[in-house]
Design a protein around this nucleic acid. Structure first.
Lengths: 126, 126, 126, 126
DNA sequence: GTGGTCTAGACCACC
DNA sequence: GTGGTCTAGACCACA
């Protein structure tokens, strides 16, 4: 996994984990990778993964069983959707709207670009 | 002016200045606020504004007349449009698409929210 | 049985066993639950119960007959009282006093809460 | 400052800071020690203090001004009182009551010990 | 094996 | 100067 510079690695890992859960690759209630395993897989320091897990635990998206490991919460999908939707609608979307407006990008151009994106990502919809 | 945590203050100020120019509130070729004035107005350290001006100068959007002050470039609007459009299409838009997809936000919901945004921002279009 | 995060599980089980003995639910000199049974009942790993028994054995509160099982010591009640009283007066009480002082909780409030606690726990005193 | 073994250092530092604020030694709204300074003073690693500050920030007890430092929140005293009172009433007090009951410690003995504690801590009340 | 904490030291962006 | 992040490596308690 490659990381971007603009955001801290441990938050990028958090987003990655949330996506795995949203896409049902990691089942709610199930055990998730151990700190050391995930660190090895992503080629980062275990402390960095630890930070990610602490962050997600503070949001109740994952929880810990002592000596056993971390687990995705049963309602993890809902919590992630709430958390990301809030972040998106409150912070990101207004910025996008402002930029569309300032750059005079038409909604139809936006739409056609989105359809192009979809056709690459999720061919099943076509 | 309030600043967000996720992005550095000097870049947020740079965006603010670009918007003023795009919206024709600060005319191309005209003198822009002095470092000291703008710092006082935005309640930030003058060094921070200085950094913003240096950043914009490196992009040729503003220039400096020694001892007099900073001025918006004649072609500032074009430069800003190029700069922001590139940033938007390359970096921001893919993220937005991914989020729309993950959160299952429909394009029609996006569109109606955008129209609502427009009606608040620019009543002249209605 | 639910366990708290702040203290290790095997010590919480030790306290649980001591309470059973103090409350005369497990008679001194009598056989106590097998490691396997108690582990099943509390839904923990047998190793964890094993550790509890070893800990209590090191304090002479329980002892082991090889091949038969664990037994509460004849003088278990006295030992537990000495052990817990020491821990309480030396460690816990000073912390409680400090908190009462910092939070400005009056002794009368403390007392009324204690009476409420007693009326729930041990109705025979009323 | 000396630390106990049973609780992690960064949480002990958090309690220490809260006490400073409760005792009005660190004024609400005022700047608190920088990460490095406090680390040097307490003779711990800066990362450890950093963790404390992150923890307190997550509870809104302190906040950060970028590049300037950490500040105690204006309503820090209230937040600390709420936080500690909740922790005390929900977790610690029931344990104390149970112990008083199990060890058959009389409330009058508790009270006299508390008065002795007060006379050492806060002579002004006598 | 699991997580949790701490240290040491580095580098960075930012004010 | 400030905080923020990351790495490396160590040690510990716990299951």
């Amino acid at each position: 996994m490659e990381f971007k510079d603009k955001q801290s690695i441990y938050l990028q890992i958090a987003d990655f984990i949330c996506e795995q859960i949203l896409l049902a690759k990691w089942p709610p209630g199930g055990r998730i990778s151990s700190v050391r395993d995930l660190a090895g897989e992503l080629e980062v320091n275990p402390n960095t993964v630890m930070r990610t897990y602490e962050f997600l635990q503070s949001k109740d998206i994952v929880f810990n069983k002592r000596g056993i490991g971390y687990f995705a919460a049963e309602n993890a999908v809902d919590l992630i959707l709430i958390y990301r939707k809030e972040r998106f609608l409150e912070n990101e979307l207004p910025e996008v709207f402002k930029t569309l407006y300032l750059l005079k990008i038409d909604i139809s151009e936006f739409q056609s670009r989105y359809e192009h994106f979809l056709s690459k990502t999720d061919p099943s919809t076509h």
